[in-house]
Design a protein around this nucleic acid. Structure first.
Lengths: 341, 341
DNA sequence: CTGAAAGCGCTTACAG
DNA sequence: CTGAAAGCGCTTACAG
């Protein structure tokens, strides 16, 4: 016996409601919606008309439960207030939206444990695939996904061990090249400003170190690492400290543009000439970089394309096509040399 | 007969798997997870141990299907690249995450039709509630929600007709007050720079008009409206046009900080003294406003709290508590007067 | 405190 | 091209 509907509780139309009204079976309605060419044109049109009239919206839960395809993709990113990941999300949506996938965004807040918890929660939605940021997830987390047969693509970094599928670029090479640029310009006392200290920042730091070591200019005391989030205000603060402790420093590579914009602001306020007294370089090339005074040298990163290509790759895996030949998709980066250096 | 499992296809643990391993019925496991005090302590502990061992994650689709509670909330916002909405989302998450709700973000891209389509798609997930931006949704969209008994709370604006539940502030009053501030400072030829032209920008424009009309200073030719997205670059452009067309203009109120930061940049580049030759005011008080040179006068808006309070209100409605006495929650705003004006 | 029965709304095979 | 049967994994009543 059907469960009694609660008094006056509105109920959404179901496949059966549509079917009854048209005078066919539910399965025919299902087919008219999902595999239109399996249903005669005439019937299909009748059905679609009634669907519209009733405002029928398929119940995803039912579909997911029975078909083991949820058309859901979990995307874990460390932050929503960082433009970088918003751009990445845009690339992901561009690919997944038109294919009918629902994106479940998980904000890990740069916290590995939270990432694990989020993934677990998201698993309850039976995602068809997962997009992860970086490659430092716990082994058991990745093993769990693998065991369930849920494909995962990692974004932003590359994996030197080739253990996981990655779409990104070499953060270390980017850090190295921008530092080499500063060296080429003649700067020798080059500081590093790092904030948040997530794995990608540390990789940029590695690149910075290698470049300076190769040039015989590395000085550990010029590495400023602060775990707080990157903000303009933090850049201002760090500049202050740097000038007090190492007034001889002639350039600073900031792990991102927010920090660098803060350094520029600090220089402007305290009358430090850029780049004559201090050269400044940022990372990511956000909109503000080009408009700063002087315009900020930065590294343009392909985050929209990272999202786009990662989603495209994931799509292939979810639709069960052949495993990709290329496991590391390197999208590169581009130095943007401007007035600040 | 159970459907045959596909060869080698990994299968997630189910309630039955846990139940079998413990030697109880599935419903007891369900209770141990959802209403722990209905199960004896001893049994509960055994069950939780096995849940852990098996890595059991409940299947949300099954739960949603049978319980008509999805623990999902659809949130429709016009953009993800606007900090305002990211802050709002943070407030929403703060409330909803700990209560076990999954947030489904819909990016409407400032497009009413897309909003309607998104909502329809989201309806397939049977959201327990909906958070909308602004109040200009199509009547049939809202009627559809009402018919399905899905509660909705509108964010960012207030509804003068009191037709819908709102958490926000008066955009018009904010526009009026910042303009009145400029008038009080003695400026008389005050321009308005509007971009995107979404309803909230138009409401700020209304406030601007009222203030100027009351002072007998309104001049339609000083209203610059551009449908493109707000960007620093656009602010630079608009300043250019303004100076060419109305060099006598002595102040400009920008509908948001991006535009205003662009105006400041343009002034700096072309040697216009701020505020001596041109006063500038923005809107939202983003981080960059306080660090600009000169620091930017702006309107601090309570978007985090908008999200927080809207989610709190929605939670009450979803959990079926009494309908709220207050249908318009006005969170106000705060003028931030700085060097630029 | 525990369980047997029923069913949420769909789709997957299998027939015709 | 169309349909009857079965079942996805849970929770809701109802019993005991």
């Amino acid at each position: 016996m059907p469960r009694k509907a609660k008094q006056g509780m509105p109920r959404a139309a179901t496949l059966h409601d549509v079917a009854a009204k048209v005078g066919v079976s539910a399965i025919t309605v299902s087919r008219a919606l999902n595999s239109p060419d399996l249903v005669s044109k005439n019937l299909r049109e009748q059905i679609l008309a009634i669907v519209d009239e009733l405002g029928y919206v398929p119940n995803r839960s039912a579909r997911t439960l029975v078909s083991s395809r949820s058309y859901t993709v979990a995307v874990l990113i460390p932050s929503l207030s960082n433009t970088v990941f918003i751009d990445t999300l845009a690339g992901i949506s561009e690919v997944l939206d038109p294919r009918g996938y629902q994106i479940l965004i998980g904000n890990t807040a740069y916290d590995d444990e939270k990432e694990e918890r989020l993934l677990r929660t998201h698993l309850s939605h039976k995602p068809d695939g997962v997009l992860l940021t970086g490659i430092r997830q716990r082994p058991q987390t990745l093993a769990h996904l693998a065991k369930l047969g849920i494909p995962a693509v990692h974004m932003m970094e590359l994996d030197p061990t080739d253990a996981c599928l990655c779409v990104g670029f070499s953060q270390e090479a980017a850090g190295r090249q921008i530092t080499e640029h500063l060296l080429a310009r003649g700067y020798r006392r080059i500081a590093f400003f790092g904030a948040r200290l997530d794995p990608r920042v540390m990789q940029r730091l590695d690149g910075y170190r290698k470049a300076l070591q190769a040039a015989g200019c590395h000085a550990a005391e010029l590495e400023y690492l602060n775990p707080r989030p990157s903000k303009i205000g933090l850049g201002v603060e760090m500049l202050d400290t740097l000038r007090r402790e190492h007034p001889d420093c002639d350039a600073v590579f900031c792990c991102n543009d927010d920090l660098a914009l803060g350094v520029l602001t600090g220089c402007q306020r305290t009358g430090i000439a850029v780049p004559a007294q201090l050269a400044v370089a940022g990372f990511n090339d956000l909109e503000g970089a080009a408009w700063a005074t002087p315009a900020l040298t930065s590294v343009r990163t392909p985050r929209y394309r990272v999202g786009f290509e990662a989603a495209t790759l994931l799509l292939q895996l979810m639709e069960g096509e052949a495993t990709p030949a290329l496991r590391q998709l390197d999208l590169g980066f581009e130095l943007q040399l401007r007035g600040s250096s």
